[in-house]
């Protein structure tokens, strides 16, 4: 498939499948196309050629968005009107459900469970603006977890988060992976999440430069890696069945 944005020249070519239960790190320098790659799953980047499939369904026909959680890189929640942790996480329930359906007690229980799973059950009623950057990131993860997704995609979850909170995030993600959630992390620095990664996809100049087990992956800071480990990316014309999920 070929991915890009209508108003920018950034183009990414890739042909890959992610299987259930994998914990995938998509790494690469800024502008390598790693964000574009995952954003295409959600229609946030244009698929210019080829196709994206989610759980075997073309994304244009895919409707069951409660099965896929997304944690965006930018936190836009803070800065406007105060929102409590509970309000933000409840907003996650809009995925794949009828708009006017009232919240049932089961929905509320799911919100509380999602908040508890990121360790913020003491902060449920607090305005999100009073939380630290790392805690706010955990709120956005809880929002993505509220519909109980099978696949969770996180764009730079540890960016701008201090080391201690990165460790907490890694623990939370490890618990999710152990529970069977498929994880896709876009990151320029794996940090404490490294031990839970089962597969690394390294992006460079809009193409996949490495795709394999974490143990064989080059260090993201090593500039010489693509000579040693990288194989020539396949420039797919995107006629095949690519995508995420299984």
């Amino acid at each position: 498939m070929r991915l890009g944005y209508a108003d920018r020249p950034s183009v990414v070519e890739a042909d890959l499948t992610i299987d259930r239960g994998e914990v995938v790190a998509v790494v690469g320098p800024n502008g390598s196309g790693k964000s574009t790659l995952v954003r295409s799953v959600f229609g946030l980047a244009q698929v210019q050629a080829g196709s994206v499939e989610i759980f075997g369904t073309d994304r244009r026909r895919f409707r069951d968005w409660s099965r896929v959680g997304y944690v965006p890189q930018r936190n836009t929640v803070v800065g406007g009107i105060p929102s409590t942790v509970r309000e933000v996480v409840t907003a996650g329930l809009v995925a794949g459900r009828h708009w006017l359906r009232p919240l049932r007690s089961a929905d509320r229980a799911r919100v509380e469970a999602a908040i508890a799973s990121v360790g913020l059950d003491q902060k449920t009623g607090e305005p999100i603006a009073t939380l630290s950057g790392g805690q706010q990131r955990r709120v956005l993860i809880a929002r993505a977890l509220a519909p109980d997704p099978e696949l969770l995609v996180l764009d730079e979850p540890t960016a701008g988060v201090d080391v201690e909170n990165q460790q907490t995030l890694a623990t939370i993600l490890g618990e999710l992976a152990a529970a069977g959630t498929t994880l896709v992390l876009v990151t320029h620095e794996m940090g404490p999440t490294r031990p839970i990664i089962t597969r690394t996809i390294a992006m460079r100049d809009g193409a996949v430069a490495y795709d394999g087990p974490e143990s064989g992956a080059p260090d993201e800071h090593d500039d010489a890696w693509h000579h040693e480990h990288g194989h020539e990316p396949e420039r797919s014309s995107g006629t095949g069945l690519e995508g995420f999920g299984s």
Partner: peptide
């Protein structure tokens, strides 16, 4: 009032709302 939950989801985060299929 009737559509406050979806309007809220879009207002706080258009990207996430879009990724949720709204």
């Amino acid at each position: 009032v009737g559509m406050r939950r979806v309007l809220y989801a879009v207002a706080i985060d258009e990207e996430h709302a879009s990724a949720s299929g709204l």
